[in-house]
């Protein structure tokens, strides 16, 4: 490796380097840790030929590279999160010139990182996606003279209006479901519903939300979800997790 950088995956407390050092990082080099005060940064050394500015600009346009890197990043974060109660993941491709430069940045943000870690301590993220059955087609009204152009247009308009109303109803219902879940979580965020091409499902995603749930209250959270499945039969509710608290590891001020 000619020029190298220090890639930071996450910062946490009480991380055991030995457990992590068997892991391979994003560039294929082993994962290490850097200690700073009571915090530990999970890092690995990367080759700037692959992770330098111009290389990244190119690599990030390549889906294969992005997928490989994102999955590896996520796996390292998960492994680290699994051995501590408080881990704040960093965004993909956060890279410093050296370990010292990374350490300086952590010192600079120390107080904010501690606040972020306190917020997610002993908590995990759960993703909740809600799918609506495609609104059923309203029965075509049988009208006299339905062969005429005017009647056809009227029928089309009614159909469209009906579909729009059904979609709006589903959206309002999904919002209501979201608020019903809120009491089960310590914090929550809504993400943009994913496109059907993304989900590979025919149903529309009406809600894409994520919840920060106390680890010792996760059973209650699932119970709440099950209750809501009964209360909202027109929805398919998909729960996925636990995720390391990506969506809730945020700094108050950037």
């Amino acid at each position: 490796m000619a020029e190298t950088g220090t890639y930071v995956y996450a910062v946490g407390r009480h991380l055991d380097e030995e457990v992590l050092s068997s892991l391979e990082g994003v560039g294929g080099t082993p994962v290490r840790t850097i200690g700073h005060r009571d915090l530990t940064a999970v890092v690995s050394t990367v080759d700037l030929e692959e992770f330098g500015e111009s290389a990244l600009r190119e690599n990030l346009e390549n889906l294969g590279w992005v997928e490989k890197t994102a999955r590896r990043h996520d796996e390292v974060v998960r492994r680290a999160a699994a051995i501590t109660t408080a881990l704040a993941p960093f965004r993909l491709v956060t890279i410093y010139r050296s370990d010292d430069a990374a350490r300086d940045r952590i010192e600079e943000l120390y107080d904010d990182l501690v606040v972020a870690l306190d917020r997610i301590d002993r908590r995990s993220e759960w993703s909740v996606k809600v799918y609506s059955q495609a609104p059923s087609k309203p029965a075509a009204p049988v009208t006299e003279g339905s062969s005429s152009g005017v009647a056809y247009l009227e029928r089309r308009r009614a159909e469209i209006r009906g579909r729009q109303a059904a979609t709006m109803d589903q959206q309002m219902l999904a919002d209501q479901l979201f608020w019903d879940l809120v009491p089960g979580a310590a914090a929550t965020r809504r993400l943009a519903p994913q496109d059907q091409r993304l989900t590979g499902r025919r149903e529309t995603m009406s809600l894409n939300a994520t919840f920060l749930v106390d680890d010792d209250r996760s059973t209650d959270f699932f119970q709440l979800v099950d209750e809501l499945r009964g209360r909202y039969p027109s929805f398919d509710i998909e729960v996925n997790g636990p995720w390391p608290p990506y969506s809730f590891a945020v700094l108050e001020k950037p």
């Binding site: 990244l56 994102a70 956060t94 410093y96 993400l191 994913q194 950037p254």
Partner: peptide, 22 residues
């Protein structure tokens, strides 16, 4: 899925500037 991961590793997490700026 990839989308779920990207949604999190790109948009969320601790976002601070690194030395490598993209």
């Amino acid at each position: 899925g990839l989308a779920d991961i990207l949604e999190r590793v790109l948009d969320k997490g601790i976002i601070i500037a690194g030395d490598i700026r993209v």
